[in-house]
């Protein structure tokens, strides 16, 4: 493997849309290791921050600086959207698609797709249309499709927002394995319990700015700012 694309640094990043400031100015470093949870109330800029890190959102001001060239950066990260995009194809072809895009041979791509389907319990559904899957199955498929190219950096935007306990558990288990294998994960969530279970680092957003950031344990033990404290208690911030 060539050199890492991380760390990723956002410098003085600002995003405005129609004159309204959605994010920033933000300075943030995503280091080589860890499982970062992005928290904050609705409209605090979680999705905008993640899309800015991923490169989907153009910055109005500031810059994103990577440790490697853009070619490698684009290939070695993946993003799972809050509403997973199901391509109008079979589960198998959804899984194989990212591999085929980059020249993997058909047979090899199908094999990989079948292996991943087994990991996410969708072997039975391999030939079903992805658009016919349940919410939990869709989210697992989207996650598997993002992981199939073994990205170095994975973004997840509220992956368990509307899922039941079992599906949430499956996804968390998968994410833990990936994290232990060394995949760098940045995930936005509302679910405090999930944040406590998974996070190594916390980014707490408020009004488009990073209000507090640092290792997870001290943050949950006693946040430095009263707003974060209130948020952890479940008060409206």
């Amino acid at each position: 493997m060539v050199g890492s694309i991380l760390p990723l640094e956002l410098r003085e990043a600002v995003v405005r849309r129609r004159g309204k400031r959605l994010l920033g100015p933000v300075d943030l470093t995503v280091g080589a290791k860890g499982f970062t949870i992005v928290m904050g109330p609705n409209g605090s800029g979680k999705t905008t921050l993640m899309r800015s890190l991923h490169g989907l959102q153009r910055l109005t001001e500031g810059e994103a600086v990577w440790a490697a060239g853009m070619e490698a950066v684009r290939k070695r990260q993946a993003y799972v959207f809050q509403q997973p995009v199901m391509m109008r194809r079979s589960v198998r072809d959804n899984l194989a698609y990212p591999l085929l895009l980059h020249g993997t041979k058909k047979a090899a791509a199908r094999m990989a797709a079948e292996e991943w389907a087994a990991r996410i319990d969708l072997t039975e559904a391999l030939d079903r249309r992805a658009t016919q899957l349940s919410g939990g199955e869709r989210q697992k498929l989207a996650l598997a499709r993002a992981l199939i190219r073994e990205p170095e950096l994975l973004f997840l935007d509220e992956p368990c927002a509307n899922l039941d306990g079992r599906a949430t558990r499956d996804i968390e288990a998968l994410l833990k394995v990936e994290h232990e294998r060394g995949t760098r994960i940045v995930m936005a969530t509302h679910d405090m319990g999930q944040a406590r279970r998974l996070a190594t680092d916390i980014v707490f957003l408020l009004n488009g700015k990073i209000h507090e950031t640092g290792p997870a344990e001290p943050f949950f033990a006693g946040p430095a700012t009263p707003e974060a404290g209130a948020f952890l208690k479940g008060d409206i911030v």
Partner: peptide, 28 residues
């Protein structure tokens, strides 16, 4: 309509313009 649905995914997956058109024509 299909492009609105696929847009973010295909940008995120770093597809070329040719790949996008082929995917959209095929899936549509």
């Amino acid at each position: 309509d299909l492009w609105a649905e696929y847009h973010d995914l295909m940008i995120s997956m770093n597809t070329t313009k040719g790949q996008r058109i082929r995917t959209l024509l095929w899936d549509g």
